[in-house]
């Protein structure tokens, strides 16, 4: 359980996350990976330090004369909110913090849509622009049907593990698939595998059941 991930998001994703240019869906995957990964946390902290240096060097723009007084007048009216109003989580959540807050429920409390036997996606999804995220569940030894995709796809393992032709992925690992690279994920035999799936474009399944699968995975 204390294994640290060996497969990380690409460095440019960590930079875009720290800089603030990464969009919400991909940022959710990166922030969730950080919960498992001290190395990437350190990298993001370094990129934020770089942001601090840039802030010191940015051409300063004089602010309006009254702006300081306007802010001073609002100091008393703005009571400090309680630091983190998150309820205590005595029970260990299966989901890392950023994902738990986005989903708002534990996986067992979610509705699931069956794609093929053993493979389910959550009815919960986050869609912003062309990107979307949902949870993907593979039963022991289950195979995700062959599909090709037209844009990037990333998976973050949350529980269990799976393999494909590129390697094996365990908790905290991130797998990234470039567009048009078919891959065949198979869940580990010794237990269920749960992942966060992020796509930039809807999947297009190939094969005779393609049209049905496409309906199943897009809502």
């Amino acid at each position: 359980m204390t294994r640290t991930p060996i497969l990380h998001p690409a460095p440019e994703l960590l930079l875009d996350y720290a800089a603030g240019s990464l969009r919400e869906v991909q940022a959710l995957l990166v922030a969730s990976h950080l919960a498992y990964c001290p190395d990437c946390r350190r990298q993001v902290a370094d990129f934020e330090a770089f942001g601090g240096v840039l802030l010191e060097e940015v051409p300063a723009e004089p602010v309006s004369v009254g702006l300081l007084d306007a802010v001073m007048a609002r100091l008393s009216e703005a009571p400090a909110p309680p630091p983190t109003p998150e309820p205590a989580h005595p029970i260990r959540s299966l989901l890392p913090g950023p994902l738990r807050r986005a989903v708002g429920a534990e996986p067992e409390a979610l509705e699931w849509v069956r794609i093929v036997p053993g493979i389910h996606v959550s009815a919960w999804a986050l869609s912003v622009g062309t990107a979307s995220a949902c949870l993907l569940r593979m039963g022991p030894g289950s195979r995700v049907p062959a599909h090709k995709h037209t844009d990037c796809e990333m998976l973050l393992v949350l529980k269990g593990g799976y393999s494909d032709e590129h390697g094996r992925y365990a908790v905290g690992d991130v797998a990234a698939y470039e567009p048009h690279t078919p891959h065949h994920a198979v869940g580990d035999r010794d237990g269920e595998c749960l992942c966060l799936l992020v796509q930039d474009q809807p999947l297009v399944f190939t094969g005779p059941l393609g049209w049905l699968l496409n309906r199943g995975i897009r809502f």
């Binding site: 969730s32 919960a35 001290p38 946390r41 913090g97 950023p98």
Partner: peptide, 17 residues
């Protein structure tokens, strides 16, 4: 008008970092 998914201090094991 997006939310920024953030890691909070209590999201990580206390012995880290």
């Amino acid at each position: 008008q997006e939310r920024r998914p953030e890691l909070r201090a209590d999201d990580i094991a206390p012995f880290d970092d």
